[in-house]
Amino acid sequence: MRTVRLEKIIETVEKLAIESCYIAKKEMTEKIDNALKIETSDLGKHVLEKLLENAQIAEKEWIPYCQDTGVAIIFVELGEEVIFDSPGFIDALNEGVRRGYKKGYLRKSIVNDPLRRENTGDNTPAIVHIKLVKGDRLRIKFCARGSGSENMSKVKMLKPAEGWEGIKSFVLETVKEAGPNPCPPIIIGLGIGGNLEKVPLLAKNALYRGIGSEHRETFYTEKEKELLEEINNLGIGPQGMGGRVTALEVHIEEAPCHIGSLPVAVVIECHAHRYREVEL
């Protein structure tokens, strides 16, 4: 067994929250820089240039990359051999969010109730997903998701007969309908299989798989490439201004499902892609 101090958890989440909102991931700025070389529309190029300038200003002058510092989503991979020095693991994750959003001057965007809508004032509660894994490792993945892209994401229960073609047209329709709203250039997390509550989690896991990574199976790698090309043929372009670059990557994660179901979830991620992970 391995003991982890809850104070360490708090400090870690605080640090990840601040870092993810201020410093653009290098993999993302490199992607945007490459996109600038293939973009053909003038307004599209103008937007991509401004995004690179924004990333520089954010890091150099210490201003959050985007004002929507989002809802805090924390994915935890918790080893079965890990124990904590005191009770209150979820409270510790929330305390980390509270401190990070306060010390980092990040926007508090959470309301206490979906209809009565009073701001909680500290961006808690975070949305936490815990997965038990073998061994004594503890991995914390922190994601800040704005509402612009979250609101454009969708889940649909397809018929098995609709297959890959059905999935593809659902993705294309979702991206087309979203248009400029989710702040393209976007990344697509596509979940296929599982069931109604599992499929969006597959899509989110896929989203945070790592920029530049490929699916472990060629069968799906080819599908990721095919979809990326078709999305970019829609011509939405950076911020919907038209052009070749609408999406930078498509990531798929699949899971077994019922003989009568084909669940699909499309999670659209904006260019800010606030995400950090660490193993404690």
Binding site: V47, K50, L51, E53, N54, A55, I57, A58, E61, I63, P64, Y65, C66, Q67, D68, G146, G148, P180, C183, Q239, C270, H271, A272
Partner: peptide, 13 residues
């Protein structure tokens, strides 16, 4: 008008 979505730091300047 549209401003550049997600470019919050640039806008602040």
């Amino acid at each position: 008008f549209v401003a550049i979505g997600g470019a919050g730091a640039l806008a602040a300047k």
